[in-house]
Design a protein around this nucleic acid. Structure first.
Lengths: 213, 213
DNA sequence: GACTGTGAAGCCATTCACAGCT
DNA sequence: AGCTGTGAATGGCTTCACAGTC
């Protein structure tokens, strides 16, 4: 299988294009140009074309891209043509929000288990999902064939939870805590940091103030 | 004032170094080397030195960096030596989680207002904060001197909320919805996407499966 | 005429390797 | 000897500009 080196930034943008295409498709639009995609998501047309070209020749010169087809391709490339069950550890406010947020329960994702060790939470329901004790994590992820774990616990517990996830065979971990997590080679760890972007903002606003703009 | 061009990636890492330094300081550690910081946050030592060198000569050759001093410098650089009041729009599960999450209420940030238009939410409290109707956004942000708005509403309302924020004088917006938001030049918009990293994971796991690894 | 696909150029960020200080 | 600060080299991503196709 041909596996070229694709920039991560390209894959991230592919997610964004894909969602934009879903919207176009829902609105009954059948054809789209790189320029229209670019306008819609805020990048340059050349970027859109280059990104898509990593994966094939999806467009028609002089015409553009077929929305339905391109949508299908992007979903396929991102691996979203199959279902990905997720296991979330941490049923506090953040875990709760993730369970009910559409982002993690559409486009191929399904939350298949929520775990917590806080006895006031275990047994309660989030939607039609029952919060299970962390001890049941290994058996449930095996039964449900879960390969991706989501960390939504407090910083101080994050590494511990990650270790359990690794031991239970998770192949990838999405970490919503600000902790730096260590995992063995071969396991993918991704962090979603809720405050880094905020500190980028204050850095920039600080500069602005310093320059009296 | 000296304003060199600093890579955004450098500023983001500075946030991470800064948090790591807080931890060291709390543990009573007084001196740290670029190698130790690198190990602690998962980057290369050269990267740490280069990043810090953008802002000054904070270290001592042969010794390392003074933890307390470097922490203070990083906070100053990030603009976190002052208080930044935030206004969150959207008091659903995500907004609620953000209000209660420590990430947005430490290190210089303070949630100074939460707004929603859903009448079942308005008037309720999150901690010691009362959810206000969106109509009060302009007057409250003026009174509280808020420059940064946080969008935690559903995708379909995100642009509308952003427009209100811009009209009310927000200088920067942190957007937690997957919508692509348009703002005038001079206003900073940053997106925190809850699912892009997840789709990066499925992309990579998909490749792995394709290669039978 | 319109729009894609792509080599080449340009730009930005990271890594290397070492001089310089303690 | 140990560690920082930094020019130089490398690597990676984005933009440019245009040939190719409809």
């Amino acid at each position: 299988m041909k596996t070229l080196r694709v920039p991560e930034a390209t894959v991230s943008r592919l997610s964004i294009y894909s969602r934009f295409l879903e919207r176009l498709d829902k609105n009954g639009i059948t054809t789209v140009s790189s320029g229209e995609i670019a306008d819609g998501v805020g990048v340059s047309p050349a970027q859109v074309r280059k990104d898509l070209a990593y994966f094939g020749d999806f467009g028609t010169r002089g015409v553009g891209y077929n929305v339905k087809d391109l949508l299908k391709y992007t979903l396929k490339i991102l691996g979203l043509d199959q279902e990905w069950p997720l296991a979330i550890v941490g049923a506090g406010n953040l875990g709760f929000a993730l369970c009910t947020n559409r982002s993690l329960s559409i486009r191929g994702f399904r939350i298949a288990g929520v775990f917590d060790n806080n006895s006031t939470r275990v047994g309660k329901r989030i939607g039609n999902l029952e919060i299970k004790p962390l001890a049941q994590f290994p058996e449930i992820v095996k039964k449900e064939n879960i390969r991706i774990g989501v960390i939504a616990v407090h910083t101080s517990l994050a590494q511990e939870v990650a270790d359990i996830m690794v031991k239970s065979g998770m192949q990838a971990i999405l970490n919503f805590s600000p902790a730096t997590i260590n995992v063995p080679d071969g396991i993918e760890i991704r962090n979603v940091d809720l405050s880094i972007k905020l500190e980028l903002i204050t850095f920039n606003l600080g500069l602005r103030t310093a320059q009296n703009l």
